[in-house]
Structure formats: structure tokens, C-alpha cells
Write a protein that binds this DNA or RNA. Structure first.
Lengths: 218, 218
DNA sequence: ATAAAAATTTAGGCAGGCCTAAATTTTTTT
DNA sequence: AAAAAAATTTAGGCCTGCCTAAATTTTTAT
């Protein structure tokens, strides 16, 4: 059996691999897991022995099929628990990540499948991230960043790239919620901030920093 | 912060202390935690340094106030999750113990209190065990064993002392559920088994072994 | 192409938790 | 009250995961 820590490394490798080309570096893992590069090296050696990653010294790391299967299992549990926390217990979407980080390591498959059914087989977690299937497939999504949208386009907010409470609370304060319809009115040549109209109503300025962390569908 | 293992020791010490007089022995802890006495000695030293137990070498062990507070917190979480698993996810009462052993270590106080509210502030878990209060008090119950009831007494099944799936499944097969009314008809002088009438209907023979693991109220 | 810088790995250590074997203390027998 | 048995603790080790410091490899800059 694999440990909590191993599960966390696999999940982190999966997430980092998703946002870049090629292999995942030791340093980026150290940063994400809040440890030192030397500790990461230790762990990579162990994960490699367990055939959960492909690892060549100094060359970065990539999940094996088995490693990816495990990573997706953990991510599935994480996202289902987040749905539970928001939908059933009334937590805010900015509060659930930390708690789900613990719940995701409860191993019972039976529990996960019953939870899924109880929640009505949700497709997305409260941040708009797709929930992997029981079979271990990550559903494809075709979102782009709000920062890549052209003037006059009408899009819908579908997710976020940044999950920190600070960012999510900022969105709350601005009245930006998943599902909002956004019509892009203008792009500032000064700071790349965008002016948008929300749900045919109020108009809003959104900083580039925020815009490139908002996922939208056309 | 304390570890999972420490939490498990505290919980186990609490449970063992409850079913006997005086201090809890190293050996009994080793048996309950499925480890060796030497490992228990190690851990007792550490728990003692952290002021969670009173410990004199060779003299057994007792929880400090702080230790008991923590133990009750873990037990509260365990029992609330068991209610969730049975009431919301439809698990059988014989299936939930193992899963709750993992869920009980998720530390968020906010989570526990919201779960409690979501479940409607239950007083007892699916096995009839009382759920400690948020303040850390164990509610008193006045149950006795079915094996201590006299002939012609009419009692109600309120809980179990043994929590193994095997025992609980045995009760299921016999049709004995919490809340059943039991009228004691006869006690065998041969093997101490008892003949009872359930809910004014069918008559049943219950072995002494089963009877002394059933808690009833008069 | 080399030197400097950055990234990564190795070496050596530490704490948590477990183990076996041996030593010690307590309890039970006789 | 001694001797035997049982319970407990200590000693010495192992594995996981982390650390710092030093060595090595790769990348970048000149």
C-alpha cells in the first residue's frame, strides 16, 4: 500500500505535468510540497522503485500508467469531497481545499462510489474542475483563459486556475461566480486589464492577474 | 500537533479505561493496537512527555485531562462519521467501523460541527454508543447487559459491546436490531442462554456470549 | 568553449513508529 | 521467602520522510 505522502507526490506530479510540456522538475515539486529538493530526490527514488514514475537522474519525472491511475483516484476523491463540503455542509468554495486534502486520503473505494451517488454524480467540483471517472479517466474540457478572449466575445465563467482562498474570496467580493455570463467590452493597452459586463447587468474591471486565472467557455 | 497514531493510542486508552478499574496495562494496549508491548512502551514515553497521560514505569497508564479531551474529540468524530455513513450513504452498521477509523483523523473542528448539524445532532451512533458533546463530555447512559436481566423483565435493546462485523451480522440474521423490545422468558441453567420474545412476536434463543454483548435499558 | 550559476543528487542525521532479543521489575506459586 | 512466571522496559535496528551540507551534473552566460 502507498502512504499519504506518496499519494500527495503523485497528485502533485499530475497537476504540474498538466500545466507544462515535458517532465516535471525536482525543484517545482519541492516548491509545491513545501519541502527541499533533497527530500524530493529521496522520494522520487522510492516512487521509481515502486514503478509509479519514470525517472532518470537529473532529467525530471513523469507518471507511469499505474502512477497516473493512482493520482486520478486521489484527485477524484478530493473533488468529490469538495462537492460534499459545499453542497451538503454549506462551506464556501474558498474553505474546502484544505479539508479535502485530508479527506482525499481515506481509501475505501466503496465510500467514494457511494458518496458519488449521494451527490448525484457531479461532473465538476465547486471550482469547475472536472471529476475523474471511477475508471480513472480525466474528462476533457475546452476552456480558455479570460485573458485570451477578444473584445465583443460573450463567454461563460466555468472554472478557476488559482485555488487560494484569497483569490476565491476576491472573486466573491467582485460578484464573479461560476456560470456567470461575461461579455468582454474592452482590453486596456496599459495594464491588460479587461472591462466586462456580467450577466447583461453591471460592468466591471478585471485585472490581468485575475483574468488569466479565470477559465471560460465560448 | 499530534499524529494519527497518538490519537489512536489516546482513544484506545480511553476505551480500555472505561471497561475496568484502575490503570490501563501495556499489554492490553499492545493487544488492542495490534503491536508489541515494546512499541507501546516507546509510545507511552512520548505521550507522557507531551503530558497526555499519567505514566509510571511498570504501573500502567491513565489519561490526563488534556489527553481525555483529545480522546473524546476523536471518539466524537468517529461516531458522527458512523452516523453519516449509515444514515446518508446507506452503509450497514457492520461496515462503518473501519472507514470511520480513517475519517476520525480529519482534524477540522468546523467540519465536525457542520457535520453534526447536518446529521441533526444525533445522540447515538449506529451501535448505540453515545456521541461526546462538542465541549468534550461523554453523555452518561444507564444500560446493562442482557445477560444480567431477570426472567419476566421487559427491556429494550439500546447498544452493543462488541463491534465486529461478524457479531453485528449475526444480530442482523437473528433479526435483533437497536430499539427492539425484548421480554425475557427463561434462562437456561445449562449454558446460560436466554429465551426471549422480540417485539411481542417471535420467540428466540440467545446464547450467553451474545447476551453479554447486548446493552439494554429497563 | 569555459566559467559561473542553477539544478539536482548524495551523504549523513534526526524523529516517529514499529520490530526482536535481552534485561529488569512485578506478580504468582509453592 | 524464594523461585518461577508474567509483564514491562531497554537496547539496538529498520523504514519513512524530512533536513543541511557537500558533491555532481546541467544550463546559462561570457
Amino acid at each position: 500500500m502507498h502512504t499519504f505522502t506518496e499519494e500527495n507526490y503523485l497528485k502533485t506530479i499530475y497537476n504540474l505535468a498538466g500545466r507544462q510540456e515535458g517532465e516535471v522538475s525536482t525543484n517545482s515539486l519541492a516548491e509545491m510540497t513545501a519541502t527541499r529538493a533533497a527530500s524530493v530526490s529521496d522520494m522520487l527514488k522510492r516512487l521509481s522503485e515502486k514503478q509509479l514514475i519514470h525517472y532518470k537522474k537529473y532529467q525530471g519525472v513523469r507518471l507511469t500508467e499505474e502512477g497516473e491511475r493512482l493520482a486520478l483516484k486521489v484527485i477524484r476523491r478530493h473533488r468529490l469531497w469538495e462537492v460534499f463540503l459545499v453542497e451538503k455542509l454549506g462551506f464556501g468554495w474558498d474553505e474546502v481545499h484544505v479539508i479535502a486534502e485530508e479527506l482525499e486520503h481515506v481509501r475505501s473505494d466503496e465510500l467514494v462510489e457511494r458518496l458519488d451517488a449521494y451527490l448525484g454524480y457531479p461532473q465538476f467540483d465547486p471550482h469547475g474542475d472536472p471529476i475523474p471517472t471511477p475508471a480513472g479517466q480525466m474528462p476533457a474540457t475546452a476552456y480558455c483563459k479570460l485573458s485570451e478572449v477578444d473584445v465583443a466575445e460573450r463567454v461563460r465563467i466555468m472554472g478557476v486556475l488559482e485555488h487560494s482562498p484569497e483569490f476565491l474570496q476576491h472573486l466573491d467580493r467582485m460578484g464573479l461566480t461560476l456560470g456567470s455570463e461575461v461579455c468582454l467590452q474592452e482590453i486596456s493597452h496599459f495594464d491588460k486589464s479587461v472591462q466586462v459586463q456580467i450577466n447583461q447587468e453591471k460592468s466591471l474591471f478585471i485585472s490581468h492577474e485575475v483574468a488569466r486565472n479565470l477559465l471560460v467557455s465560448r
